[in-house]
Amino acid sequence: MIAFDNVDFGYGDQPILAGVSLTLEPGGFYFLTGPSGAGKTTFLNLVTLATLPKAGRATFFGIDPAGEDRDGIATLRQRMGMVHQNCQFLDHLTLRENIALPLEVSGRRRPEHDGDISDLLAWVALDHRADAHPPELSGGERQRAALARAVILSPEILVADEPTGNIDREMGEKVLGLMVELNRLGRTILVATHDLDLIRTAKRDVSARVMRINDRRIELAGAEL
């Protein structure tokens, strides 16, 4: 699905990731862990095409983004869902409108999607907040709303950056539970987190692979998890 072959990335002369070679398989559940500043977010930026490799080759759904123009890269992004730690919403739109936004920007919005949006809101237990504006939502509600927005286009992969970083344990497990559900529906999940307890909890329910960033390289974590 997404393959990296000897990929390097850095800012200016400062290397962040070096020689990254891995493949994210369809239907896989992946955790990415490592200390703060190790390059987790940078790797997620590479996975979500927010940045492109400095060296090496990366392919997304069989497509090399190096040969794509900006519209082509935007189209690839529409096949992914992204949940940030600090979920970004358009504050002047309601929660329902924010969740529908990916449908709008991809030109796929149809009247029949109203029901899908209601179903999604119910799935993340926010149906009673549909008309609220993002600043009115709590941290946990924002995370769940971000998850709903990320899956509205039925993405092939969901990428989450510290999705439980700003919420309490109970809410974190709820968000994780939703991602496990998605994985069971065949979606690939990639979660960057430094919360090892969260990884242990997930591994009880799914067969997750854990990757760790160590000295600018990404390696499979050992059995200590």
Binding site: A50, D71, Q78, M82, Q88, L101, V105, S106
Partner: peptide, 16 residues
């Protein structure tokens, strides 16, 4: 800028 960034994250094209 934040609106634009959000739109880019969810796959909006430049023209949009």
């Amino acid at each position: 800028a934040r609106v634009i960034e959000t739109l880019r994250v969810i796959g909006a094209r430049d023209t949009y």
